[in-house]
Amino acid sequence: MPSSTPQHFMDRVAIVTGAGSGIGRATAVALAESGARVLGVGRRKEALEETARAHSNIAVLPLDVCEEGAADTVVTTAVEWWGRIDVLVNNAGVTAVMPLAETDRSVITRLFEVNVTAPSMLAHAALPYLRDSSGSVVNVSSTYGHRPLAQGAHYAATKSALEQLTRSWALELAPEGVRVNAIAPGPTETDVLSAAGLPQDAIDAMLSHERDRIPTGRLGDPQDVAAWILRIADPSGPYLTGQVLTIDGGLELV
Rank of each mutant, 00 (worst) to 15 (best):
V65D: 00
V65L: 13
V65H: 00
E68M: 07
G69K: 06
G69D: 10
G69F: 04
G69H: 06
A70Q: 11
A70T: 06
A70V: 05
A70L: 08
A70C: 10
A71G: 08
A71P: 01
A71W: 01
D72F: 01
T73L: 13
T73A: 13
T73W: 03
V74A: 02
V74L: 03
V74Y: 00
V74G: 02
V75W: 07
V75L: 09
V75T: 01
T76Y: 04
T76W: 07
T77F: 10
T77R: 14
T77E: 12
T77Y: 11
A78D: 00
V79Y: 05
V79L: 02
V79G: 03
E80I: 05
E80Y: 09
W81S: 14
W81F: 04
W81D: 08
W81P: 00
W82A: 06
G83F: 07
G83A: 09
G83N: 04
G83V: 07
R84F: 06
I85E: 01
I85H: 01
I85M: 04
I85L: 14
D86V: 11
D86G: 11
V87R: 00
V87D: 00
V87Y: 00
L88F: 03
L88K: 03
V89Q: 03
V89H: 00
V89C: 07
N91A: 10
N91L: 10
N91E: 13
G93S: 13
G93D: 07
V94R: 08
V94W: 01
V94K: 08
V94S: 10
T95A: 15
A96H: 14
V97M: 12
V97W: 06
V97H: 09
M98R: 06
P99C: 08
L100I: 13
L100Q: 06
A101M: 07
A101E: 15
A101Y: 02
E102D: 15
E102A: 14
E102C: 06
E102I: 03
T103Y: 09
D104L: 10
R105G: 11
R105H: 13
R105V: 14
R105P: 05
S106N: 10
S106C: 03
V107A: 02
V107S: 01
I108A: 11
I108K: 04
T109P: 01
T109W: 04
T109V: 12
T109K: 13
R110N: 14
R110M: 01
R110T: 14
R110F: 03
R110L: 07
L111Q: 09
L111W: 01
F112C: 05
F112K: 00
F112N: 02
E113A: 15
E113T: 05
V114R: 04
N115T: 05
N115S: 07
N115F: 05
V116G: 00
V116W: 01
V116D: 02
T117E: 14
T117H: 10
A118S: 13
A118M: 04
A118C: 11
P119L: 05
S120Y: 14
M121E: 13
M121N: 05
L122N: 04
A123Q: 06
A123E: 02
H124N: 12
H124G: 05
H124Y: 11
A125D: 04
A125F: 04
A125S: 14
A126L: 02
A126G: 06
A126S: 15
L127R: 04
P128F: 08
P128I: 11
Y129V: 01
Y129S: 08
R131W: 06
R131H: 13
D132E: 15
D132M: 12
D132F: 02
D132G: 12
D132H: 11
S134A: 14
S134W: 03
S134Q: 15
